[in-house]
Design a protein around this nucleic acid. Structure first.
Length: 157
DNA sequence: GCCAACGTTGGC
DNA sequence: GCCAACGTTGGC
């Protein structure tokens, strides 16, 4: 059964528009064990993903992606020049894993944090929880659908 | 830039 | 295995 996810990114580092341009990307640099475990053990190809812009104006869900692959060793852990370099990790036994995400849709407007908070059906959503810092987390199918509904129809060309 | 929240590290 | 210090996240 396919699952649904929310992943955070700071758009000054990598934005939904960047994903649209690239088509797909490796979700590198996540260095939190819980987030890693989700990407290594629970994400599956085809899963749907909400892309959330944090430390942004406005903050909120900026679009949709799909999991192309999961449990992929994160190459940045081996890159000395990367901020995410991990000298303790080896290629034989990598510590960090990532997902590969595929662009699906850029929302016409960000579904803002305020909008998410105002939506009763999203009251239990992880990203709204106080003090939440997890950058990869599951969402329920209902939450996913509610966010897509808030984004509205795709504008006509 | 502030600061609350919380994960990680390391001394013991 | 405790827990204080420290670093990071992320909204404001």
């Amino acid at each position: 059964m396919s699952r649904h996810w929310l992943v955070k990114t700071e758009p000054t580092t990598y934005s939904m528009a960047d994903l649209q341009r690239d088509g797909r990307t490796g979700w590198e640099g996540v260095r939190n064990y819980q987030a890693r475990n989700f990407m290594r053990d629970e994400m599956k190809p085809g899963d749907r993903v909400l892309i959330y812009h944090s430390s942004a104006d406005p903050t909120g869900v900026a679009g949709l992606a799909r999991v192309r692959a999961a449990g992929v060793p994160d190459p940045s852990q081996f890159n000395r020049r990367s901020e995410a370099f991990d000298p303790a990790s080896t290629r034989e036994s990598p510590r960090w894993f990532m997902a590969e995400l595929e662009f699906e849709r850029l929302f016409d407007r960000v579904v803002t944090l305020d909008q998410l908070r105002a939506e009763p059906s999203l009251a239990g959503m992880g990203v709204l929880r106080r003090g939440n810092r997890l950058s990869v987390m599951p969402v329920t199918p209902e939450e996913y659908r509610a966010v897509v509904a808030l984004a509205g129809r795709k504008a006509r060309a």
